Amino acid sequence: MPEQPVRAKLVDVAHAAGVSKATVSKVLNGRQDLSVRPETRRRVHEAAEALGYRPHSGARALAGASTHALALLVPALANPTYVTIARGAYQRARELGYLSLLAEDFDGQEADESFHDLVQEGRVDGLLIASARPGHPLLDALSRSAVPHVFLNRSVEGSGRNVTMDVARSSVMALDHLHGLGHRVVGHIAGPHGITPSEVRKEAFLRHAGVLGLEAAPVASGDFTEDGGGSAARELLRPADGRGPVTALYTSSLAQAIGAMAAIRELGLRIPQDISVVGNDDLPVAGHLHPPLTTVAMPLYELGTAAVDALVGGIEGRPVGDVVVPTEPGLVLRASTARPAGAEAGTGAETRTGAGTGTGTGGTP
């Protein structure tokens, strides 16, 4: 069979005409308010004709029509946390008459351009951004754009459009549980440096450890992956001067917890007899690990729905502001936590259950 011709893209026309993609989009859609010379307009039209460029059918949105589609940008589809967020966003969008699309922010790709093009070419009405890491080029692009958008799970300070959860509460719940069992040296496996929810979780962990008077609260950072959790666990479980041995670990994600549990076994230790483990996810697989994993469940489904509510409100002209999902985290007790050998359970630190909304919960890396 003969090869199918490659359809020309907006960027191809821009390169051929020597102008920006935004200029091409506006020229081809008849925007008369664009200050460009007639020669430039002619060059754009000639380049489009030579390349056989056909604007996407959604480009009518530039003239004021709505596509009733939203786009959700996540840092990693391999992370089940974002699948749960996406489910909440998709179902709420449907209820409001919108379609929610999903895009992955691969490292090294020009996500700011490709994602911004979804709006510039009229394919979506607004953006749900869950990958707003510090220094992301998309942040600069959005600061100079009128594109409707909200940030979720990873907030942007001062943006006034963050949709978040009570991340600090998750650390308090995990530490209260472990302290109540009698653990006095608890280690925390944080996420990568600079990731907002990870920093908030770590700061809350250290602050509450001080309130509880724990002997030590060492922290090690790692990626939100099994390897990241394993390497951080090995670091925390090494003997250290000035403190007793770590008897419990609290991780920032389910993947980290799985890696930490593997590392504990590699070191010849038992769970929970020697080391208790609490993960910051509650996905179905947590109950099928060996032993089943105690977790702090976060309202991720509700996070997805709240983000869509905020974005659609902005698209429809209502004020956009910071939103905190009112649903609190919940502790799901399983067999990976127990009283440390030789210790008496503490008093005044009751454990709580109550995770889940029946719609799916998970962690918040």
Rank of each mutant, 00 (worst) to 15 (best):
P2G: 01
K9V: 11
L10M: 05
V13K: 06
V13F: 05
V19H: 11
K26C: 11
K26P: 06
V27W: 08
N29T: 12
L34F: 13
L34M: 14
L34W: 14
R37F: 12
R42A: 14
R42G: 12
E46W: 10
A50G: 06
G52Q: 02
G52C: 02
Y53L: 11
R54C: 08
G58N: 07
A59H: 07
L62N: 10
A63P: 03
T67P: 04
H68S: 13
L73C: 04
V83L: 15
T84P: 03
I85V: 14
Y90D: 13
R92A: 06
E95C: 06
G97E: 05
L99N: 13
S100Y: 05
A111K: 11
A111Y: 12
D112S: 13
D112W: 13
E113H: 12
F115T: 08
H116F: 15
H116A: 15
D117L: 06
V119Y: 15
Q120E: 12
Q120N: 06
L127A: 09
S131K: 06
A132L: 09
P134K: 09
H136E: 07
A141E: 15
R144G: 10
L152A: 13
E157I: 15
S159K: 10
G160F: 13
M165S: 15
M165T: 15
D166E: 14
A168L: 05
A168T: 01
A168V: 00
D176V: 07
L178C: 10
L178D: 02
L181V: 01
G187E: 04
I189Q: 07
S198K: 04
E199F: 08
L206E: 15
R207W: 08
A209P: 13
G210D: 14
G210M: 07
G210A: 14
L214S: 04
E215P: 03
A217N: 03
P218A: 01
G222M: 02
G222E: 00
S231V: 05
R234L: 05
P239K: 03
D241H: 05
A248D: 00
L249N: 00
Y250I: 05
T251A: 02
S252V: 01
A255P: 00
A257W: 01
A260E: 06
M261H: 08
I271R: 02
P272L: 05
N280H: 13
D281M: 03
D282I: 06
A286G: 08
G287R: 00
P291G: 04
L293F: 00
T295H: 00
A306M: 14
A310M: 04
A310V: 02
E316I: 04
R318I: 05
V325F: 08
P326L: 00
V332N: 07
A338V: 00
A341P: 13
A343D: 03
A343G: 04
E344I: 05
A345I: 00
A345G: 01
G346W: 10
G346P: 06
E350M: 09
E350D: 12
R352S: 09
T353W: 08
G354M: 02
G354I: 03
G354Q: 02
T357Q: 09
T357F: 11
G360Q: 01
T361M: 01
